[in-house]
Design a protein around this nucleic acid. Structure first.
Length: 506
RNA sequence: GGCCCGUUCGUCUAGCGGUCCAGGACGCUGCCCUUUCACGGCAGAAACACGGGUUCGAUUCCCGUACGGGUCACCA
């Protein structure tokens, strides 16, 4: 009888979540929902020096925008496993650390950060490999393993700062089966006695993580590959406590599209696209980093894009709603190697999502964008214009930007299109003005019929008059059907523009 | 550098010993549609890192090399 699936996303509030973090949260969410389990959000803020105000709210808002809010924990329900912020759990960790020390699974160490740095430098100067605080070196350091018991007690009584380190056994092969990578094996000889509790009394990530995952009954730990090297330590910790370890799944990293390395927060807008779900203003510098939401992405397309970065269902389906992702998701189909992030594919997804919208939805998007840009049009035309512009838009703002001539008179004429304008043009436009002016209902169909009748009468080709007509009305050399544009503009405005063009370009 | 993980088109990837002179998608190129642009349709270029094994047979299994990534804090 297996217990209920419970997973957690446990970010550190050191700044905005980047898209790699969002993907980790997404995979956790998908896995939980697929198995009818719980998705928790825990804040790992054991490092007080790195706390960034606003980061926690940002994380909650980002998940909410994506539609993958946690069931339990920060931003979700408190189901009695809280607090869900590690800084608020500080007193709880002490007992566990003491238990480990009492059972000879951990020890107290007095070495200062400076002394440790010195050891590392010395080792480096001697050309040795990494200096490690381990089964060999701990015998020469200042700790409860080397110092007499009375001295240890005296130091503690005197208020001397100390840390607690795990006491790793010598030459022990640590093995665990990663859901994505299969068996991973590391010898304790290559590991060191990591600090479990810092001098300030706060646990390190390693200790807090294990204690909390155990207490919160986490069944599956799904996290980035950057944690793979410390997974053996975590296994040792579970063993030290005598607890059953959860299953692990280490996700491949999101890599920079250009140079080497993983996509990082610092990449910001250097690459010409957002790396954060929502816009973020650095509270210290005031710098603003763009977000996918503000860039015009839909939560659905954003998630769809992220989901396929490192996972695929094994079929040729690429477009998924969140519900479909839940159904199709499978951790064993997550790939092993890192994925270079490709913004072009993301844009494609957004374009696809935009086109799936119906006329009412598009009209509402257009209205919002028009308001933002300070434009307004006859509400009756909203749907027509939105639909017309949607096929050349990737983002909602393109609905306006790709056709500003629909909302204001052209202030200039496109240089390239201007080449189509010649000596005969004013007369042609003049003829059209006269014809259009006579139209009863200035509708798309009527305008088209009138225009074509004119072509037939003068025995002119569409290519001869069309571009000139377009230039006069929109100032452009390309765009959607002129007849639709004219109907939207209305007779008065269309004729006014044509007259203005004749005057300006004569 | 030590340790760990990985390696199929430019990119994301399918492939779990013969179905693969390797499939899909983004991007790119060409053609068609079209007054133009866009959309759409069609077509095309484009990859199994290398070397050894194992096997009747390797993209698929094993080993090595190369390359890439991660990690080596009283940060997570």
């Amino acid at each position: 009888m297996s217990s209920k699936v419970r997973v957690r996303f446990a970010p550190s509030p050191t700044g905005p979540l980047h898209i790699g973090g969002v993907r980790t949260a997404l995979y956790n969410y998908l896995f939980a929902k697929k198995h009818g389990g719980d998705f928790l959000l825990r804040i790992e803020d054991t490092d007080q020096t790195r706390y960034v105000p606003g980061a926690e709210d940002y994380i909650i808002e980002a998940l909410k925008w994506c539609g993958i809010s946690p069931d339990e924990g920060i931003g979700g329900e408190d189901r009695g496993n809280g607090p869900y912020r590690q800084s608020e759990r500080k007193p709880m960790y002490m007992d566990y650390v003491n238990e480990l020390v009492a059972n000879d699974k951990a020890y107290i160490a007095f070495d200062t950060a400076e002394e440790l740095d010195q050891m590392r430098e010395l080792a480096k100067a001697a050309g040795a490999a990494n200096w490690q605080y381990n089964y060999i070196t701990r015998g020469n350091m200042k700790n409860s393993l080397t110092l007499p018991k009375e001295e240890v007690e005296a130091k503690i009584a005197a208020g001397e700062p100390y840390v607690v380190r795990i006491k790793l056994p010598r030459d022990h092969e640590v093995r665990f089966e990663d859901i994505i990578r299969g068996w991973v094996s590391v010898n304790t000889n290559n590991m060191d006695d990591k600090v479990l509790m810092k001098a300030d009394g706060m646990p390190t990530y390693h200790l807090a993580n294990i204690v909390d995952d155990h207490l919160m009954e986490i069944t599956h730990v799904i996290r980035g590959e950057e944690w793979l090297p410390s997974a053996p330590l975590h296994i040792m910790l579970y063993e030290a406590f005598g607890w059953e370890s959860p299953s692990f799944a280490h996700l491949p990293l999101l890599l920079k599209p250009d140079g080497p390395g993983k996509l990082s927060k610092r990449d910001g807008d250097r690459l010409g696209f957002p790396v954060f779900p929502l816009e973020w203003t650095n509270p210290e510098t005031g710098d603003v980093a763009s977000g996918y939401r503000e860039f015009g992405f839909f939560p659905g397309s954003f998630l769809n894009m992220l989901a396929l970065l490192g996972w695929n269902p094994g079929t040729e389906q690429e477009v998924f709603s969140l519900e479909e992702l839940v159904q199709a998701f499978d951790l064993s189909k997550v790939s092993k190697s890192g994925a270079k992030f490709d913004f072009e594919k993301g844009k494609w997804f957004n374009q696809l999502y935009l086109r799936k919208l119906n006329e009412t939805e598009l009209a509402s998007l257009l209205k919002t964008e028009l308001d933002k840009a300070g434009y307004s049009i006859n509400e009756a035309h909203l749907g027509k214009v939105a639909t017309m512009m949607s096929e050349r838009a990737t983002f909602p703002q393109d609905l306006v930007n790709e056709g500003t001539y629909l909302f204001e008179r052209p202030s200039a004429y496109d240089e390239k299109a201007l080449k189509k304008w010649n000596d005969e043009s004013p007369a042609m436009v003049g003829d059209l003005i006269a014809r259009f002016d006579a139209l009863e209902n200035f509708t798309e169909a009527e305008i088209e019929a009138s225009f074509k009748a004119y072509l037939a009468e003068k025995e002119l080709g569409f290519g001869k008059v069309g571009p000139v007509f377009r230039l006069a009305v929109t100032g452009m050399g390309m765009g959607p059907s002129m007849f639709t544009i004219c109907e939207v503009l209305g007779k008065k405005e269309t004729l006014a523009r044509m007259n203005a063009a004749v005057e300006a370009l004569a």
